[in-house]
């Protein structure tokens, strides 16, 4: 019994300790991110590896999610004789929820895991320590550019995901099924509000970008310097990012959309 309680206590303390460490790490990144903007080339390189290289998976998944949404949405809507509302259904669900969330999940598993692996391996091979020895701050030189690269890439990827989704739904709904083209776009435009829907979606994707990038670089920096430790850190990155995205999404949604729209 005491052992069980002690194990629980140790886990709680450990968790809070890690949370505190992550917060301090976040502040340290913010404090030392001057380099990543002064030498923007460092950040551009990271935008390439997190953003540009994630393009294919984001675009293809967005398109397929749009295709499925279009098919399923049409299937249900035509029962009520309002298949023209397909545009509204697809655009609202993509822009408000699916775009930021699914793009965030994909981003965490495609780019977040790579960030963790890279930094973890640098730590394992003592490259970070070597930098420290040469009076190069590893947080400013290695961690901050990767963090900002992720933060910048994520909203762009989410917007691309939503766009491809809308295009996919248009493709299946208008081109294949034969929903009226004009009604599809005009009904969509009539009920998607720029400030209320699109800006809130972009805010969500920015928040997810911060969360995923922070978790990824933190887990990499905090990983045990062994092969096993790095692999565990990558697992934690993907799991924690997914949980963080879903939890944050609920919190943000409950603040943004109170059902009075």
């Amino acid at each position: 019994m005491t052992r069980l309680l002690r194990a629980m206590g140790a886990r709680t303390v450990d968790g809070i300790w890690r949370l505190g460490f992550a917060t301090r790490f976040f502040l340290a990144i913010l404090a030392r991110s001057g380099t990543s903007f002064a030498r923007f080339q460092l950040t551009i390189r990271e935008i390439f590896s997190t953003g540009v290289l994630s393009l294919i998976i984001i675009l293809v998944s967005g398109f397929f999610v749009g295709l499925v949404l279009g098919l399923q949405g049409y299937e249900t809507l035509q029962r009520y004789g309002s298949s023209e509302a397909l545009g509204i259904l697809v655009a609202l669900s993509l822009v408000r929820e699916l775009g930021p969330v699914v793009a965030g999940l994909l981003f965490a598993s495609r780019a977040g895991s790579a960030l963790t692996a890279e930094i973890g391996l640098m730590k394992t091979t003592e490259q970070l320590k070597a930098m420290d020895m040469m009076a190069v701050d590893p947080i400013a030189r290695v961690v901050a550019p990767r963090f900002w690269g992720g933060v910048i890439s994520m909203p762009l990827l989410a917007a691309l995901f939503s766009t491809m989704g809308v295009f996919g739904a248009w493709f299946i709904g208008v081109v294949f099924i034969g929903v009226d083209d004009g009604a599809f776009w005009s009904q969509m435009q009539a009920s998607v509000d720029f400030r209320y829907d699109i800006v809130n979606g972009v805010i969500k994707s920015v928040v997810f970008g911060f969360a995923v990038a922070l978790i990824a670089v933190f887990e990499g920096y905090d990983s045990a310097p062994t092969a096993e430790g790095v692999s565990r850190a990558i697992t934690r990155t993907v799991v924690n990012s997914a949980l963080a995205i879903l939890a944050l999404d609920f919190v943000l949604t409950s603040f943004m959309f109170r059902g009075n729209g």
């Binding site: 822009v95 762009l156 917007a159 939503s162 998607v192 509000d193 720029f194 699109i198 972009v202």
Partner: peptide, 10 residues
């Protein structure tokens, strides 16, 4: 893409 969302979808 953001512009598309703002102008064409929104």
């Amino acid at each position: 893409a953001v512009l598309f969302l703002a102008l064409k979808v929104g």
